[in-house]
Design a protein around this nucleic acid. Structure first.
Lengths: 208, 208
DNA sequence: ATTCTTATTGATCATATGATCTGTAAAAGA
DNA sequence: TCTTTTACAGATCATATGATCAATAAGAAT
């Protein structure tokens, strides 16, 4: 089952301060559940952490609350609250704002743990997923659409679906890399930049 | 657990011809595993089918081979073998070929069962996934890149990453709809058409 | 060194789960 | 109607799994 790194069975029992141990468990759980899915077994997780399975239940009431802690750890700070303002700052060219956002955002989300736990929890129908996506829609994409409308000089304006298409095309890079484990260029910058430029060009927005 | 449609427990035992019963099980398993994931329990599946759990093992050696049958059922005919030829048929405008392909392809893959089982199996690292994506890359996207290069009149040519971006942006519609269960327009045609046109415009390919 | 606190373990429980096997009854053939 | 075949159900097994709890020992306090 869990043939990832085995732990020295001879390692002497070590007592950690509770906060420290708890954090160690959460960190390990994030990596573990990201790899095998949320149905991963507590015994496998414990073995990987080099602790007993029963210890897990000393720090978490049950498996569900452990997974909640994993969610908290992973979802936290994933959408910086300053972006809505930065995206609406018209003293900066729209292209620069878009590039800055997706450069920042992609380094935040193109991460093995986040990508996979987000997908696992999405498939499981986790409420946190819906909230995250609604937040993304309201705080990022919707303001962005306004900015694009304001900057566009064309009669043909993009709608929300067009913007989701831009967003999805970029996010799909991370899906290819971490969900499907396909070989990808190490630097996603050029592909993202091209995608943004194609989008802006289509709506006749000056590109520098 | 399995609070989906319950089955009348009074229903009289019915004998089906083996091929028919087997197909019924596979169909039910596709729907079931698509909903709850590949770790869905055989007892839940059996209850949903209105048969006993033991009967499943009369038709499949073990759960793994049942899942293999699910894969076979779901992956079959998902990439029509005629598309490589049709995509390379230069008697038809490139835009028309692209539109026709993605119109066809999207109706094939924007389907609850396929989308979710593909994602579940992708996360599980199923070999079939890798094969599918390699097939897609070699038989569809690579030829498509050639066609675009041939039709493009610009110095700036798209590369494989750009094409994956087009593809991903389209596929992401299905992900939003079936994985994240977000509200989506019922007709994806316009969004797909716009995405393709933006792409072609960027490479100065005549659009009709 | 000794005592004390408590983080950690090991044994254990109840239930869930994949899988097996024997008996039963539905449907076909005589 | 009787016989035969075999699809199917029900009982059961072995193991896995989440969870509990009393006993232990690491490390701080004295």
């Amino acid at each position: 089952m869990d043939n990832a790194e085995t732990v020295d069975p001879k390692a002497k029992r070590r007592r950690l301060p509770p906060v420290e141990r708890r954090q160690q468990i959460v960190d390990g759980a994030v990596a573990f559940f990201a790899e095998v899915g949320l149905e991963g077994k507590t015994r496998d997780l414990a073995r990987r952490l080099g602790i007993t399975q029963s210890l897990l239940f000393n720090y978490f009431e049950n498996k569900e609350s452990l997974i909640e802690a994993v969610y908290d750890q992973v979802y936290i700070d994933r959408l910086s609250p300053e972006w809505p303002h930065r995206l609406a700052d018209r003293s900066v060219p729209l292209r620069s704002r878009l590039l800055a956002f997706y450069k920042d955002y992609s380094t935040l989300i193109f991460e093995y743990e986040w990508m996979r736990i987000f997908m696992f929890s999405g498939l499981a129908g986790a409420e946190l997923n819906r909230r995250y996506l609604e937040h993304l829609n309201k705080m990022i994409l919707h303001p962005l659409l306004n900015e694009i409308h304001a900057a566009s000089s064309k009669s043909m304006m993009p709608d929300m679906e067009d913007l989701w298409n831009l967003h999805g095309g970029i996010v799909y890079i991370g899906i290819r890399q971490h969900i499907y484990r396909m070989p990808c260029p190490e630097d996603h910058g050029p592909a993202i930049e091209n995608a943004i430029d194609r989008f802006l060009q289509a709506f006749a927005i000056e590109q520098d």
